[in-house]
Simulated assay, not measured.
Amino acid sequence: MPVRNTTASQLISQSGQLAGSVDGGILVGSFRFAAGRRTPTHVHADHQLVWAQSGVLHVTTDGAGWVLPPTRAVWVPAGVPHTTGASTPATLRSLYLPPDCPVRFAEPTAIAVDDLLAALIVHLARIDLPAAARTRAEAVVFDLVTPARAGVVHVPMPRDPRALHLAETLVADPADARDLPAWGRHVGASTRTLARVFVAETGLSFARWRTHVRLRAALVHLADGVPVSAVAGRVGYQTPSAFVSVFRRTLGVTPGHYLTR
């Protein structure tokens, strides 16, 4: 897929609003994403902090993906190809930070968004904010961009064609309960081969990878207000308690706590 070198102003001119100073400070882009909208793969000369003020966003970088409810953002370093999309209507607030800013995460990083950081992003999105007030607010933002203690769900995709077919099928239907031997028969590979490929190409065992797929799908439903009891069945768990147990074990908190600040 071609990668576009896109500036913040080019993206804003398509369907959004840009706020910020022109002297190397933070720019804030505001976008409305309809359900199913997805940007082309592109890169920025600036660092980017992707945050959903409402709804749920998906960010993909080189085969890895994050689901972002309003309590989480993802830091995308300058020059990293990525796409942003939404499965439900969402409001994107995108911060563009200069390469020499104090935040120096070299890899895409999950960021916790508490009430203060959320309020500051909305504050900086104002187009009528005086320059002095903007400078003071930007300084606080740099201090608040810290890694999330409870991470976002990370779903890297394998490259092997057989494993990729399996992965894409499970992403489309996380409740599919077939085990690895059954998948091996379906895609024409031995159980051992598939197990080895998943570890080598995703860094996760097949079982753990499937758990991440299910939790990523669950986050979209939860953020859309679907009850835990219904979400559990939709993503392949026999009981709500089993789903909550896996969620807590993987992300360190309950579903309710993950979606609140």
Score class of each variant (00 low, 15 high):
7 T>I: 09
8 A>M: 14
8 A>N: 10
9 S>M: 10
11 L>H: 04
12 I>F: 06
16 G>L: 02
27 L>W: 09
29 G>N: 04
35 A>I: 06
35 A>L: 03
35 A>T: 04
37 R>A: 07
41 T>V: 15
41 T>P: 11
45 A>W: 05
47 H>N: 15
50 V>R: 02
50 V>C: 03
54 S>K: 14
57 L>S: 07
58 H>S: 03
61 T>H: 12
64 A>F: 12
64 A>L: 14
65 G>A: 05
67 V>M: 02
70 P>W: 04
70 P>V: 10
72 R>K: 15
73 A>I: 11
76 V>A: 00
77 P>L: 02
80 V>P: 11
88 T>E: 04
92 L>A: 14
95 L>P: 06
98 P>I: 06
99 P>L: 10
99 P>K: 03
99 P>A: 08
100 D>A: 09
103 V>W: 13
108 P>S: 01
111 I>P: 04
120 L>H: 07
122 V>M: 09
123 H>G: 08
128 D>R: 02
137 A>D: 12
145 V>I: 14
145 V>K: 07
147 P>D: 00
151 G>W: 03
153 V>Q: 04
159 R>I: 15
163 A>Y: 02
165 H>I: 12
175 A>H: 01
175 A>Q: 04
176 D>C: 15
177 A>T: 09
178 R>S: 06
180 L>V: 11
181 P>N: 06
181 P>F: 03
186 H>C: 08
186 H>G: 11
189 A>E: 02
205 S>F: 07
208 R>W: 07
213 V>M: 00
214 R>H: 03
215 L>W: 01
216 R>I: 00
219 L>W: 01
221 H>G: 06
223 A>R: 01
223 A>D: 09
224 D>H: 11
228 V>M: 04
230 A>I: 13
230 A>C: 11
232 A>Q: 02
239 T>G: 09
241 S>Q: 15
245 S>T: 12
247 F>G: 01
253 V>I: 13
259 L>N: 03
